[in-house]
Design a protein around this nucleic acid. Sequence first.
DNA 1: GTCTATAAATGGATAGAC
DNA 2: GTCTATCCATTTATAGAC
Lengths: 211, 211
Amino acid sequence: MKTRDRILDVSLELFNAEGEAKQTAVDIANALDMSPGNLYYHFKGKEPIIEALFDRFEEEMQIILGGSHGAVTSIEDNWIFVYIVLEEIYDFRFFYRNVGDMMERYPGLAHRFRKILAMKRQAIDNVLSQLEKRGFVDIDRRLRPALVQQMLSTLTFWLSHDLIEGSDRDGPSLIHDTVLQFMLLVVPYMGEAGADALDGMLERRRDLMKA
Amino acid sequence: MKTRDRILDVSLELFNAEGEAKQTAVDIANALDMSPGNLYYHFKGKEPIIEALFDRFEEEMQIILGGSHGAVTSIEDNWIFVYIVLEEIYDFRFFYRNVGDMMERYPGLAHRFRKILAMKRQAIDNVLSQLEKRGFVDIDRRLRPALVQQMLSTLTFWLSHDLIEGSDRDGPSLIHDTVLQFMLLVVPYMGEAGADALDGMLERRRDLMKA
DNA sequence: GTCTATAAATGGATAGAC
DNA sequence: GTCTATCCATTTATAGAC
């Protein structure tokens, strides 16, 4: 099963770098220095390759999002999973450059995308509940669903948004800014402590910029 | 120039209903009860049709976003332009079901999309400034850019988000909920008056649901 | 302006030799 | 497992008659 893995590795790299939609089966074979016939021996086309890549992605995400998110003390620590999720998405960023397009062209992925979305929502909800229970934040019940939705959107469309703005940033810096953007959403609900927490977040971001 | 307009009208309807990516030049001709050859006489293919449709959309958006946004008293009235923008986007929703994909496949649209994005950002900024000046809201300077970005994302990805969630809602109800989602973003910055404003927004939403 | 017919181009897919 | 050769389907695009 070595060639099979090589096909997946190179395909992932190619899709992330050049965009999935533009690559044909022949392009993939070329990138592998392999004949199209041989590629078809291992995978019946582009679609099964995509699905095999999604298998990998899904597995990772389930590990990340299925893990426990309790037992942390500081506010920022609660959101560490956000950072990890963004990094994982970045590894498979071709899926997220254009989620709607992927779901449309590979209908088999739609419900699996939604399952991951639901897990993300659950994870966000858990963390917010933690923060509320510990008294770090106080969120109006009527505003809570909108806040969760906003967080979920951030997690889903950060790459699309960057693409549309055409900023062409490097991955790590984009990830850091997205984490910041995410955390800033709770600041208004932190009351007195909000100002200090905000300072901390921005300072940390500056440190990361330098490094 | 009558056939030309008919082609654009029917194409828009077809793209909105069935998705732009799936329609070929022949499909468009069929929907028009017209031969492909004739279609090609008026437009050299799908791309010039898309661009002509974007001309229409761009013109409308410039009128909406270029207009003045001052001289309104209530908080909700300030956001009327959001409602109008969403309705206009809905009329050309095939552009927004998958913005990134459109920009990728029609590179000529990219900078025009970005121009509209910039106008939206400006309009949001103006309204926020108005609200601040009148003392309706008090937004930390360091949080303001993140808030604007969230609002912009909402305005850009509401249709994608609905598509991904697969909720398959009807247009008007989706538009109303998106306006609500948009306005809820400022509630945390309204201080004492926030609770009342929130009540008003939710009540208004309920009234619209019944109608 | 509109049609029919057909060419040209692209990408997906398989057969059969090695 | 891997290659070459080839076929098939789809879509774009044009030529020429009406």
